[in-house]
Design a protein around this nucleic acid. Structure first.
Lengths: 239, 239
DNA sequence: TTAACAAAGTGGTATTTACCAGTTTATAGG
DNA sequence: CCTATAAACTGGTAAATACCACTTTGTTAA
């Protein structure tokens, strides 16, 4: 049943869980050599895991000193922590809701094929949604889901449950990680209208590719987020 | 004379230069095993260099296929790694330079007093700079430095050395950490002019407070960065 | 001709060993 | 008591080797 997981991935899972549940910012992690012994793996494996944890921003390494839990400062809606829109909004005491304005099966173009790493079945579902918090439109997103993974997906399913919930419950697809990038952009007429904003207003354009446990790309999403509601916060540690 | 440079750094320099001057998007790089032979280094070293190149967005690896030059639209500077503008630009094979367009001592307003946690001496130096990479204006920044920390600071000092270099060498101020936030915004007439862009163009507005070893706030900077050159990349890990 | 399979090529993970480069701490000498 | 220095940490770079997982290509058999 369980997909065999790499040693470094196991370390990543263990450490990130440890960090989030039992450690506090600036706490020091065991040294790489200690982790070698504790988990009976090579230093390469430990460093591999550390690389990923550092990339995800969970830890910060300092030459000669050690590896520490990164401190993240408070934020309005810190995009770095925005893995799930609905969960984040709930956490802020706002009521999240989606309005699906498009749902159809299309054939993937070259870019989609590459992003989702499609093989035989080139059909994808396109889902366009306006995402709201307590009635206020916050972002607009276009998601593309491989039809080969989500066979028989219906609009009704997505209207009744959140997308990630549908992945888990209806298709037994478990999210493992996501690569996201974000840049500044300008709202065009159509999207500004949907977000109740002026055309030409600033926005953040987000792109995300989400992967499941077995490494399949299961979602490619482009979102446009109101500039006045989202930001990124990062803490840099030197030397 | 030569600063000793690691083998992987040498590989990085060579490859990034190669990519920027002689290769086009989607071109394939030599395989890792070929690079081993060409440069007479171990695969560890090749992969180390590849890791960095992938991180910097210059190349994209595909399991079983090869390593390819990333499409230009994806090769933006990752702000999450931009602790130092000049160092980041050098890593990309570009030549960083600053043009100081304002330098004067002013009296801090309420906001500055709070951000820099000023006590008695409310004087601050304001330094406005255009930051360029290989001659192209990349971002505009207004920095505020407590006069109590940097006594007798002159424009000449900043023109001769980088700001952080001046902190270290001339004032023995060692940077420990920085809190940064970023959001989308629109360029106004003045700044768009300085950046050689159109007014109303999208930009990222960055704010940073930098602290030294003793926890003093030593710098507060607001920057406006070209939307077509910078983005944030984040890797989310789910549990 | 075509479908199935094998081989060769790619990046990905892992081990073991060695040494380099910073930081902290213990210790010896004044 | 202090200072210099050595030892013992820390993470960083590098080599050599092996095998796994995925993709392309070439060959073989139906």
């Amino acid at each position: 049943m369980d997909k065999k997981e790499s040693l470094s991935q196991h370390l990543i899972d263990f450490l990130s869980n440890q960090i989030l549940t039992e450690m506090r910012p600036n706490d020091r992690l065991p040294s790489e050599r200690d982790l070698m012994l504790q988990f009976n793996v090579s230093r390469t494996t430990v460093r591999n895991a550390s690389d990923k944890l550092e990339l995800s921003g969970l830890v910060t390494r300092m030459h000669g000193k050690g590896t520490f839990v990164t401190k993240r400062s408070e934020s309005l809606t810190n995009l770095a922590d925005l893995f799930s829109f609905s969960k984040t909004m709930e956490l802020q005491g706002r009521t999240p809701s989606d309005r699906i304005i498009k749902f159809k099966k299309i054939s993937a173009d070259e870019e989609l094929i590459q992003r989702l790493n499609l093989k035989e079945n080139l059909n994808v579902f396109e889902v366009d949604r306006i995402r709201m918090a307590s009635g206020k439109p916050m972002m607009f997103g276009k998601s593309f889901l491989p039809a080969g993974v989500f066979e028989g997906l219906t609009r009704k399913q997505l209207e009744e449950n959140s997308m990630y919930r549908t992945f888990e419950d209806d298709y037994d697809v478990h999210i493992k990680e996501a690569d996201e990038s974000c840049r500044a952009s300008i709202l065009n007429d159509k999207i500004s209208n949907l977000l109740d904003e002026k055309p030409g207003a600033a926005c953040l354009r987000l792109e995300r590719v989400t992967m499941d446990n077995s490494g399949r790309a299961i979602e490619y999403t482009i979102s446009w987020a109101r500039a006045d509601e989202f930001n990124y916060r990062i803490k840099h540690l030197y030397r």
